[in-house]
């Protein structure tokens, strides 16, 4: 059942974004920035965690979940450390995704060569 929910919710988030891409002339970079910021906002008003509870990876895999974790990281750090938590929380919470992408991306640049399209 959770698999079906993940499929449908994850698919819907992608489908809505696709409508957005087709109807506007926004480049993918802007779409990705938009997704993360929306994730931060939905996290802050408490909706994103509810969506994650309902759909599991269906809400956890889309990039908006990265925004949600950034928000949660900042909030928890502020609760624990006070003002300075505003500066420690975000990067800690985003560490796994960012580090994995940078490290694997860098290793890929050592192994693979650019290839053209046909």
């Amino acid at each position: 059942m959770i698999y079906l929910k993940a499929f449908i919710v994850g698919g819907l988030i992608c489908a809505i974004t696709q409508i957005f891409i087709d109807k506007t002339k926004l480049l993918p970079g802007r779409i990705m920035v938009g997704m993360v910021v929306i994730g931060v906002i939905l996290g802050a008003i408490g909706w994103y965690d509810k969506l994650m509870d309902f759909a599991g990876a269906g809400a956890g895999v889309p990039l908006s979940s990265f925004g949600n974790s950034l928000w949660k990281g900042v909030k928890e750090a502020v609760d624990k450390e006070g003002f300075i938590g505003l500066f420690t929380g975000g990067f800690k919470a985003g560490a796994v995704g960012t580090s994995a992408a940078l490290i694997f991306g860098y290793i890929a640049s050592l192994i693979f060569n650019p290839r053209t399209k046909k």
């Binding site: 994850g10 698919g11 988030i13 992608c14 489908a15 974004t17 696709q18 957005f20 891409i21 993918p28 779409i31 990705m32 997704m35 895999v61 889309p62 990039l63 908006s64 979940s65 990265f66 995704g97 994995a100 992408a101 694997f104 991306g105």
Partner: peptide, 11 residues
């Protein structure tokens, strides 16, 4: 968007 939106698109 099916490949752009998931974290895999970020990677």
């Amino acid at each position: 968007a099916g490949t752009l939106v998931p974290i895999t698109g970020f990677a």
